[in-house]
Design a protein around this nucleic acid. Structure first.
Lengths: 114, 114
DNA sequence: CATACCCATTGACAAACGTCAATGCGTTGT
DNA sequence: ACAACGCATTGACGTTTGTCAATGGGTATG
């Protein structure tokens, strides 16, 4: 049996602004993280890095997704700009891993995805 | 002392596609939820509804955010289209609440935000 | 040096997004 | 009936986004 919240009574012209648990500036920050993850390719990349034991290089992702190399690089750059991912270079390769100092909110969001 | 994952050795021309823990179709679904939340206004709306004891009507949000009524309505429609929110009408008001049958992933993502 | 390889950046373009003004529809109160 | 209110939809607009082709820079191999 589902408990439905009762609808509040109202007088015309009277509004009841809800308390904003999430402050605007913080909302902007979290929203930036969500924007970075709100693309199927980037989401799969991020989750793959979350679950990978070793850093992954771009060429691996280029082989995985049906996308051009510049597009893959572009997506990874977005994850990097959002602070979700770190890059380390070795020879001609760029290896990416989840940022070790990932903000708590970002970490929790990533872990929330099965 | 931070433990850095060792970078893998490589031969030129050899790529190692990572295992995609997140399947493409599921990635698309989760990505849609993230897209719906990846806007400061919609994020604040969703979190406000998450924490509200009673359903909230549009006019309340219009008073809260510095946005026009059509814009607020438009944002709420996006949350509705994403299945995150349900509407119940009473008189001239439209009251919104978090969808009771919220997908587990969506619920976890919302709860991951402090 | 020359070649092959990996990657990032730039430029370009269509598609999607966020916003508002204007409009229309249903409901309430006079 | 009429006016006022709450809300959704439409049309329009500038901005952002996702994608690729082309280019350039860096690094290894011959």
């Amino acid at each position: 049996m589902l408990k439905i919240a009762t609808l509040p009574e109202r007088e015309r012209g009277v509004c009841c602004p809800p308390t904003l648990t999430l402050r605007p500036e913080r909302a902007a920050g979290v929203s930036d993280v969500l924007k970075a993850l709100a693309d199927p390719t980037r989401l799969q990349m991020a989750i793959a890095l979350r679950d990978a034991k070793e850093p992954v290089c771009i060429c691996d992702f280029v082989g995985t997704f049906d996308l051009s190399q510049p597009t893959v690089s572009h997506h990874m750059a977005k994850l990097r700009d959002a602070g979700l991912v770190e890059v380390t270079k070795r020879g001609i390769w760029s290896f990416y891993r989840l940022a070790p100092d990932l903000p708590v909110a970002a970490r929790r969001i990533l872990n929330a995805i099965g």
